[in-house]
Write a protein that binds this DNA or RNA. Structure first.
Lengths: 156, 156
DNA sequence: TTAGCTGCAAAAGGTTTGCAAATTA
DNA sequence: TAATTTGCAAACCTTTTGCAGCTAA
């Protein structure tokens, strides 16, 4: 069984070459990352996978993502609270709007300045991409913020 | 009841002025943040609090931290996987070593360059401090890394 | 044939919530 | 007195794990 997707097969080939077994579940997990929606959680990957094979378990998805990550083919990122999200390929920087949840993909080069400073000052090597940069996007920035209060619903 | 700690009382005064009630639990939570160890998790705050008053519940600690955060007196940060950590006062940037877990506190100014670029390019306003910068500290950097493999324990 | 994968179910954190009783202002 | 806060226990959500059966190589 193969998919007709060369991007999927390219990743699968690396799995095979690393001594991993090629299974339907693994091909579908990769397909979810290649063709599914951007920034999927494990749950979202499972939904994609299960659309084709309902019997594939969420735990298999987690284990497959973990295996792909160990090979350096996949990275996971935390976009704030809630589930981690997974993506293939080059590390890059995620910008997340805390108001509307929009995710912007920015280049890893964005942090070159910070990276150089941390290396010089603390001998610290930044691992780009494993953390998101949170903030407020342009669209939400125009909206006024309610001042905090301790009454009622706790100010939220 | 007061503590003898003016830093605690300063925070507590703000709670009172915001219309919040001042309780023993709240004072102890603030004291944990002022006098306890750096980067405490909710669990660690509870341990500090319960050293004085064993009956104070973990859920009260969470709710107090949430209330303090709503007032802008406390921030929480994710240093990677696992529990969030809490701190009083000025937002700053945390650097976390993924190998040994060491946390370095860096100035928020570290990100000024990134901040300016994101504002110009995406109209994105960075919320400093809510995310950690992960990487590898100088001490761990000298250690060699094992190459990934898909065999056995998954290369970890 | 035999590691390596998988499905299922249960466990394991970390955090939140419902509710009645206690407490603050 | 009235509204907020608290303790307790249970619920929740995401991720991990144990294990027996299945399967790719």
């Amino acid at each position: 069984m193969t998919t007709d997707d060369p991007r999927v097969e390219a990743v699968i080939d690396k799995v095979r070459r690393a001594g991993g077994r090629v299974t339907t579940a693994r091909r579908l997990v990769v397909a979810a990352l290649v063709r599914g929606r951007a920034h999927p959680t494990a749950e979202a990957v499972a939904a994609f996978v299960q659309a084709e094979h309902l019997e594939i378990a969420l735990s298999t998805v987690y284990r497959t993502l973990e295996a792909l990550e160990a090979l350096g083919l996949v990275e996971h990122t935390h976009l704030g609270h809630g589930s981690a999200v997974y993506h293939l390929g080059e590390p890059h920087q995620h910008l997340v709007c805390e108001d509307c949840g929009t995710v912007i993909d920015a280049s890893a080069a964005l942090l070159d300045d910070v990276r150089a400073r941390l290396r010089a000052q603390y001998a610290f090597e930044v691992h780009v991409g494993h953390f998101a940069v949170l903030g407020r996007c342009g669209r939400c920035g125009v909206t006024a913020r309610r001042p905090p209060s301790m009454r009622g619903d706790g100010g939220r």
